[in-house]
Every structure is written in C-alpha cells, then in structure tokens.
Design a binder for these strands. Sequence first.
DNA 1: ACTGAATATTAATTCAAG
DNA 2: CTTGAATTAATATTCAGT
Lengths: 69, 69
Amino acid sequence: MKERLTRLKTVRKLIKNYRIESQDELLGYLQKEGFAVTQATLSRDLKLLKVGKVSDGHAGYVYTMPDED
Amino acid sequence: MKERLTRLKTVRKLIKNYRIESQDELLGYLQKEGFAVTQATLSRDLKLLKVGKVSDGHAGYVYTMPDED
DNA sequence: ACTGAATATTAATTCAAG
DNA sequence: CTTGAATTAATATTCAGT
C-alpha cells in the first residue's frame, strides 16, 4: 500500500502550514484531507518524518519539521 | 531563588552532551550533578529552554537543543 | 510491510503550598 | 515566582490481524 507515502507528504505539508499542538489535532486535519488513520499510525509517521514537538516558550507546544530531509 | 538558572544551564549541557530519551533519564543525570527536582519541574524547564523530543528515524527519541538561544 | 485497538509510558498541567 | 504531588493528557509501543 503506497498510501503511506502520500500521507507522509500531506502530514509534512500540514505541519509546515498550520500550528498543530497535538496528534489528535493533526488527525483532524488529515481527515479533512481524506486520510483516515489512528493516533498510533500518526505517531509512527511523525517518527519517520523526524518531526519534533517543541515549546514556543510561552503559549504552547508545536510540531516542527526538520530543515529538509 | 536563582537555583533555576543554574539548573537550566546544567540541563542545557546535559542535553548537548548525552543522548537522553526521557525526562526521567534526564532527571537521573541532574541528580548526579546535585539537583533534586521532580518531573514536573523538568517539564517546565524543557519548555523554557525550548528543547524538543525528536525521533532519530529508527532507534528512539532524543532531546535536542535549539541552535543557540 | 502497514495498521488499529488497547495498553504502557511519558510528559504537561492543575492545584496547593512555600 | 518556583516547586512537588497528584492528575490528566499526550504519545509510543505491543500485540494481533491483514
């Protein structure tokens, strides 16, 4: 199944364009894009993409993409 | 209490020098350096320092310092 | 190999207190 | 303003199934 590849691309895009604070939130965006997965899968995707969750210092926590990969 | 400042410095150093995979692990190193805090405090420290936990792609998860701050 | 459901683990926040 | 204990929330992993 090559769905994972297209999904990973989408996840990447979403993280770059939105301020996402949790995997559940990301899950919501993904669904709007037509992907139906669970949190477990998303966790694995984020691992593959090496995205990190970092505080912005005051407000909350945000997912970040590594610079090119 | 200015202990937080010295502790933050130490946390920074530890994260730069070791491969730390959890706050509990970091807690251990901190104790060896003479700081006795709880996970709650550490979580706050990491927030202040904007450190992030990121997968290295295969093995596990590692804490990372933002490039200069 | 990829995934979901359930679970275990880890991390953030609340709430009270110094 | 900083912290710890307890709690809640978030995330990683296990285990089974395809």
